[in-house]
Design a protein around this nucleic acid. Structure first.
Lengths: 250, 250
DNA sequence: GCCTTTCGTCGTACGGCGTACTGAGTTAGC
DNA sequence: GCTAACTCAGTACGCCGTACGACGAAAGGC
């Protein structure tokens, strides 16, 4: 009942094997000029330069190799991307296990934030699913372990951990798209509000957007601490989980 | 200081004008066979069929028109997509204004959830920024208005509203990618756990993933109520905001 | 009624993409 | 040395977005 070839589609099975158990170098035939790791690294290098420049031709060029040679290491572009994602997750640090659960969850959240900032392509091309790779699951496992320390029931632990990860992703997505838009249009952070003012002067009407105007005048959109937004949400979420845990314990 | 042509790039200005003030039909020359609304609708119809089938050729085919004819209505593909996004936001309902703020925020969250479920392409191709369109801003405005009823300070209102919207987006993203993967691989919801069991039997080790195993055995991954996950997070977030508001009020 | 100007329409084409196919060259085992 | 297995990569096909230009239709000036 747990036969491996029953798992999903054949391509899915091949992807899992590539993630968990990369094939050894072949016995016959010419030596491989590259390794799977080099291909994945080259993909990450290309994606780091510009998100949407990630293409098989560019990766091959990065490695000084014919385009089609990549297909000896990787079944296709999507699979290469999944390997890149798992590798990025593999660079995350883990919290000390003797810390309280909240400090460990905060550590994981900050590591996730750092990961998304260092590898923005994790967000910009998210139409693919999160791979079931070993490094992804290692991080998930450790976050579950930390949240289990709360003593909450299983369903709540799963939901709480998911909420933390999902919140960091959402906040990172907002941040990344903002900065990437700024990079594309060439407007600096200082010009940003002036630009919005210009837009508002043309189409903004006080009758239509009174609340935004109120918030604007009260400084609601002045981000003095750029990380304050997502830390606010993280603290609010962790407060909520803590309260649930206290309700269980006491 | 608020001259319109100072706003960002010329293309950005053109996009804003297209969103807020679509040009009238031309006085000279042949009649237009279509309207801007028809083009946007056709784009939404194509995207509804399959997310990544959205292309200018397909949209033109949908309308029975040459591909290049679309470019008389729309500057390009990205701009068409922004118009589609704003139109989707324009289909959202608004809460009754005499409800308490929390009910209004919940209404907006549910409307956002419904919008993402009806138009999954809003999520799957999220690499573009959220447009500054009139319908998007109308919804934002109304959500700000509702959260302002808490009496919280401006910065906290902006952060709270952003947290609610971002949470729904993240939850919808998780849901949509799950179901789209299920649709692509052809595994039904019933086979899903069997499939995971097959994967676990091959590569899952109890020593490496003890917490996941514990949560699995305790039924933490059994989703009896499919909407429970995101409603849990929404309630937790709104609880947190409510607590902050109570702290302000006394 | 005619001419000119101003437009919409759309065929063609260019450069980019992923990748299937094919063949040439290389190595291990017999 | 021969053969089977394998890597490497050129070519090609069908997609994509869109620049360009030819063509025809409508409106204003006379």
């Amino acid at each position: 009942m747990t036969e491996p070839d029953q798992w999903g589609t054949p391509e899915g099975q091949a992807m899992i094997e590539l993630l968990w158990d990369p094939p050894p170098p072949p016995r016959r035939g010419p030596r491989q000029r590259l390794t799977l790791g080099q291909v994945v690294d080259a993909g990450m290098a290309v994606a780091a330069r510009s998100v949407d420049e990630l293409s098989m031709r560019k990766v091959a060029q990065e490695l000084g190799v014919g385009t089609m040679s990549l297909y000896t290491y990787v079944p296709g572009r999507d699979e290469l991307f999944e390997l890149m994602v798992d590798r990025a997750w593999g660079m995350r640090k883990f919290p000390e296990r003797d810390l309280p659960w909240r400090a460990q969850a905060e550590f994981h959240a900050h590591e996730a934030w750092r990961m998304y900032r260092e590898h923005p392509w994790l967000i910009s091309s998210n139409l693919w699913r999160m791979p079931l790779g070993p490094h992804v699951l290692d991080v998930q496992e450790d976050l579950y372990r930390a949240v289990l320390l709360t003593g909450l029931d299983a369903v709540t632990v799963v939901r709480s951990a998911g909420l933390v990860e999902s919140h960091v992703f959402g906040a990172a997505r907002a941040k990344i798209t903002d900065t990437s838009v700024a990079a594309r249009t060439g407007v600096t952070q200082d010009d940003y509000y002036a630009a919005r003012a210009g837009f508002w002067g043309t189409y903004f009407s006080e009758e239509r957007f009174p609340s935004m105007l109120t918030l604007w005048n009260a400084g609601g959109f002045d981000a003095e601490n750029p990380d304050g937004d997502w830390e606010f949400g993280l603290a609010l979420i962790l407060d909520g989980i803590e309260r649930l845990a206290d309700g269980v314990r006491g």
